[in-house]
Nucleic acid binder design. Structure first.
Lengths: 214, 214
DNA sequence: TAGATTGTTAATCGATTAACAATC
DNA sequence: TAGATTGTTAATCGATTAACAATC
């Protein structure tokens, strides 16, 4: 029951898939959904889906299934999707612009409130509703607005030092799209998104001709 | 020894991290590297790194370590990074443009050779060396050039039907950045890259204040 | 030789799955 | 009641880690 237990990481990574299936069911005015259907979305057997969902407490009704609306809102609470999460984004290149205007984030509670770049020629440019600011303003901005999340979408070379500035300014979580492993104080959580590494595993499985899980 | 054994998926996902550390070592003219150093890059103990690397055959020397250049080229072969992998990309939005010009892919053998979009106003636009082509040309292009990899960077709604066109034209591997789970014949491998799902797990661990592995 | 580090065995740990009583 | 589906137990499976002989 609930947040205090130790939840397997693979399970945490599947929960968002169940949630996505639930959103789809909501759109279709489907009121009840089975562990079978949820499992399919995540590519796991029904038993696995039930086990995963049991971490939220008893969320379904035996003989019936799961109430779509109820389970969706439980998952939202469980994953913290309802909380407003303000973030800054550094790097106004192609990837940074893609992230700044990614349509799905709002629904999950993420709001990118400022955009920074080192390159003087990019300062002042507008990306969606945001204006690119100079890196020098990062520290003050983060402190003043008490921002906890930093998204790092720069090339590899400047990433480490920018991450350090973020950490000093009080950023607690860094979502890192730069292909480097950051060395930071343990209190800073780092989530790496390494496209080149993903490509390498894709390459491996493609050669093997064998399907991984996705 | 080698490709025929069954390699744990977590291991396959760590190999690219060792590889990245090796590239760095090469740049620094470091000739020998230990399992300890490699493990640090991937966030695992030295024993794990050794076990992982043992899937490539005996790659190190007891009492000494691993030869940086040799291990790097072994990993390249093992992961198939040396093979030229031609891909098409569909979706010329922000994310598509970011991917089309992502600097790291070339090093890993990926070459994006064409870019497609549905939107007539985008056709003909240049993105790097590529020109955006109309969706109607996708099938013929893929067949003619025998392209095996399709990168899907569209919004959710059109993704399923585009994926089907890809599959029909002979695409064997789809790297899917659209937030949908694709229903395709089993022969098509799908690698999902779901930023919203990643954000949801980030949200969860942030609330918990506990560090996952990265 | 002494010190270092690999490759691998065996033990541990953790996640998945099958099966079924409980429930609707 | 008969049929369906959950939540959970116990068994299985697979990955990680500790430890150490073999090697340099």
């Amino acid at each position: 029951m609930g947040t205090s237990e130790n939840i397997p990481r693979p399970c945490v990574m599947r929960l968002p898939h169940y949630y996505r299936r639930l959103l789809q069911a909501l759109q279709n005015h489907q009121a009840i959904i089975s562990s079978q259907e949820l499992g399919e979305e995540a590519g796991v057997p029904a038993a696995q889906a039930r086990r995963d969902l049991s971490y939220l407490g008893e969320a379904g009704r035996p003989g019936v299934g799961y109430g779509v609306a109820e389970l969706a809102s439980r998952l939202e609470r469980f994953l913290g999707l309802g909380e407003l999460k303000e973030a800054i984004l550094v790097g106004a290149g192609n990837l940074g612009r893609a992230l700044a205007s990614y349509p799905g984030f709002g629904r999950y509670g993420l709001r990118i409130v400022a955009l920074f770049d080192r390159d003087p020629t990019k300062i002042g440019a507008r990306i969606g509703a945001l204006e690119v600011r100079p890196m020098e303003e990062l520290g003050a901005f983060v402190r003043q607005r008490k921002i906890k999340i930093g998204i790092l979408a720069t090339p590899a070379p400047p990433a480490q030092s920018i991450a350090e500035w973020m950490a000093e300014a009080g950023i607690a979580v860094i979502w890192n799209f730069a292909p480097v492993s950051l060395e930071l104080p343990a209190r800073v959580m780092v989530f790496n998104e390494d496209l080149a590494a993903r490509l390498a595993t894709l390459s491996y499985y493609m050669m093997q001709g064998k399907e991984p899980r996705g």
